[in-house]
Structure formats: structure tokens, C-alpha cells
Amino acid sequence: MLEVERLEKSFGGVRAVDGFSFHVDKGETLGIIGPNGAGKTTVFNLITRFYTPDGGRMRFMGKSITHLPPYRLARLGIARTFQNLRLFKDLTVLENITSAHLTGHSYSPFAGIFRTRRHLRIEREARDNAMMLLDFLGLGGKEQAPAGSLPYGEQRRLEIARALAIRPRLLLIDEPGAGMNPREIQDLVATLREVKARFDLTIVMIEHQMGLVMNISDRILVMDFGEKIMEGTPSEVRKDRRVIEAYLGEEPV
């Protein structure tokens, strides 16, 4: 589904991503772990083209995507969330989602001005779809609240809902569990599973919370200093000495 080859990016002197390659198959859930500053988020920013790679190639569903701008990648079906949450804070919860839906469902400005049937139909679909997603992620009843006013955990879920609203095939999630307590993490695991099954998704997830990432991933990739240091199933990774040293600390989790 997604193939990344020898991706490179440096900032000033720092080689944030250094010849990093990986692939994800359709329907798979790939976890990426690694210590702070390993370059994980940078990989996401390179895939979604918020950063321009210094080198390397990327293909998505057989098509080269190395030179496509971010919005085109989104329309091809690559959705993402952000480590530091990037909701449209001043827009309502509902608008955060309808906006994403409407990028893929177009009507002309003319139709918007004269409120044609098509315009009304598409707007109604956007609304219905948004309500469905909000219910699905447990945000029903909050449609009219400004997104910025939600508690942190709900903002995280709203961001996932927004990403789903573009009907992606591939979902890149950056630390969905950050700042959540174990109970919330459990809910999140359940939600992500459901989401995956229901929307027929492939997921790449960066996560520090071992409980979450080990639980949900089919395969895990460990990064350090911009490079892949190992790759394997959750149980293999858990046992690997290098991983324990580089990342998991003294005690195996």
C-alpha cells in the first residue's frame, strides 16, 4: 500500500531522518516506536509532504507520491493526525468534520451562491456523515461547541474523526495516546480496532504507550537517530536486547 525508500531529511546539522525505508501492506497496522527525537514525526511530515524530503522515494498504491503537495495526498486517501493536535479551534465540532467531508464532495461556487439542489444535497450528506462519525467516536451532542473548548481527550478523538471524514485508505496517527490515562487508552484501543474494521483502513501509528502500540499493531518498527534499528512482531520487539537498551529502558515491558 505504502512504500517508502531511503527517505532523508536534515535540519541544519541534524540528520532527523537518515535513509529510512519501510512499507505497509493493505489492512495492516504498523506501529512505529523510538525515543524522543528519533525522527518519527518527521517521517510523517515527509510522507504527507509538509516537509520536503532531501532524498528518497515514496509510492502509494503503486503510484509515485514523492512530488505531490499535501492536499493531493489527502485526496488520494492519506489522512493524518498531529502530535500537537491541529483542530480548527474556532470552528464548531461539526464544522471540523463537514469541512473534511466536503473536500471530497464538490459543488461549484455558482451552486453555492444560488443554493442549487446539488449544493443542498451535498451539504446534507456532509452533515449526516459528520453526525455519524461524531456518534461513532463518542462525541454526539457536542456538534455546536467550538472545537477548542473540548477537553483534551475529546479533542484527540475529534481529530481522528476529522481524519476519517476524508474517507482515507491509509491513516497516519501520531501519538494518539499522549496524555491519556490507562482507562482512556483502553477505550482508544477498542475504538481504533472498530474504526479499522469499519472503514477498511490501513494504519501507521506512532506511539510511546506500550500498552497501546503492542496491543494493536501487527508489526512494529523501531527507530533511533533517524534510522530503523529493528522490525518485527510485537513479541519479537519486546524481547530484543537493542530495543530494550535503546528505548524501553532497563525493564522489559
Partner: peptide, 21 residues
Amino acid sequence: SRYGLFWRCIKDDETASASIG
């Protein structure tokens, strides 16, 4: 309409706007 909504999205967060297409 959707155009006005996109404009407001861009005002709020351009990066996030691009990320949803």
C-alpha cells in the same frame, strides 16, 4: 457554502487544512 468553510479553516490552521485535502 463549502468555500466559506474552507476559508475559515485556512484562517484557523493552514497546515491542518491541507491535511484534510
